[in-house]
Design a protein around this nucleic acid. Structure first.
Lengths: 190, 190
DNA sequence: CGAGCGCTTGATTGAGTTCAAAAATCGTGG
DNA sequence: CCACGATTTTTGAACTCAATCAAGCGCTCG
């Protein structure tokens, strides 16, 4: 997977800007289980996944985890809310596999506003894609039964389905691991 | 409420660009119940609400409506998915009140890419806010009971709560009108 | 090799749905 | 401005899907 810097280079950023980025985007290797972000604080960084798999999730007042998203190769994960509005995040981020990541901190995020228009256009495009995905997920959550949400998930993310424990998929779908297990049982009988 | 054009003027767009916008952003008055967009087709326009209240929603295979969002004054509503990826939309849009709107069609959306950086930055900001809102909603949907989702809703959108029929709020929350009615009954008893 | 973690399976409980019907509210024509 | 029909909300009973609680199995990794 290309690094974030390579992506940005392709947008025609000035070499001056690129050298700034070089010094501020840190490449890092993390091992499975590593926690990259905890809730309750203001975090001003996002993670670009070059290799591996990250996850963001919240923990409710009962101590229950709720998976917000999985981020495989090429994805960016972070808390746009905390980042954009400078509020404490609700999200934890950890590594589900040994991963290679680029860490983009908020200074860079401000730099992103000095990027060429093409890079901004890409940013708009990425955010639009994100909105689409979330829109789709909201509609599924308010309109479809657990079975159908699961079927949709394995169809949309067959790759992730293989790499992630069932209980996390259940969490992503908004149901308990037991419920998902039973759903799977019924589906395979069909 | 300022018109969309006024917003764009404030970003320092060239007068040339503005005259283009003048000819392409159509101001319109629609009355309650008017349907502005239907699903199944590719629509390349968004609606900026200057006054009134719009709603976007999907209809499932059983003919049931599912409210995706409410758009009061100052909001933009449309299907970013259809718009960005040129796919048929799943969303209907209609007017819940007599409304004054600016219609931005996809040509203008392309023009938006020729806007000053400041306007693009605003676009990024708006999309980020949208992502935040959706993120929050997803987390509520997968982690909270109907009661708490409702309490959150009236806290976040007290204004909309007054202007919209219960059944649509129920739909937005992903529950039936009957369930919401019972929840309200219990809450007021407390 | 065993302890713990994750998945399964079953029994029970509870939140929310469905169906039905009454009560309240809204909108419209007269 | 009132009255009436239509829509919306409320209430209730029976049911269903998914949560909770609990126990057993299979893996793996320490």
């Amino acid at each position: 997977m290309k690094s974030l810097k390579e992506f940005i280079t392709s947008t025609g950023a000035s070499s001056e800007l690129l050298s700034q980025l070089t010094s501020e985007i840190k490449q890092k290797t993390v091992s499975k289980g590593a926690i990259l972000q905890t809730s309750g604080e203001k975090w001003h960084r996002s993670f670009f996944v070059r290799k591996g798999l990250l996850r963001s999730y919240s923990i409710d007042h009962k101590g229950k985890e709720h998976v917000f998203m999985f981020a495989p190769e090429g994805w960016v994960v972070g808390d746009i809310e905390s980042l954009t509005f400078d509020t404490p995040t609700m999200l934890f981020i950890d590594a589900l596999e040994d991963s290679e990541i680029d860490i983009i901190d908020s200074k860079n995020f401000k730099i992103l506003n000095d990027l060429p228009k093409e890079a901004m256009r890409q940013q708009i495009d990425k955010l639009s894609r994100r909105v689409s995905v979330l829109q789709h997920r909201v509609l599924m959550l308010i309109s479809a039964r657990a079975v159908d949400r699961y079927k949709e998930f394995i169809k949309t993310y067959p790759n992730i389905t293989q790499r992630v424990p069932q209980r996390m998929i259940a969490s992503y779908l908004g149901i308990t691991p037991e419920a998902l297990s039973k759903i799977r049982g019924k589906i395979t009988k069909e």
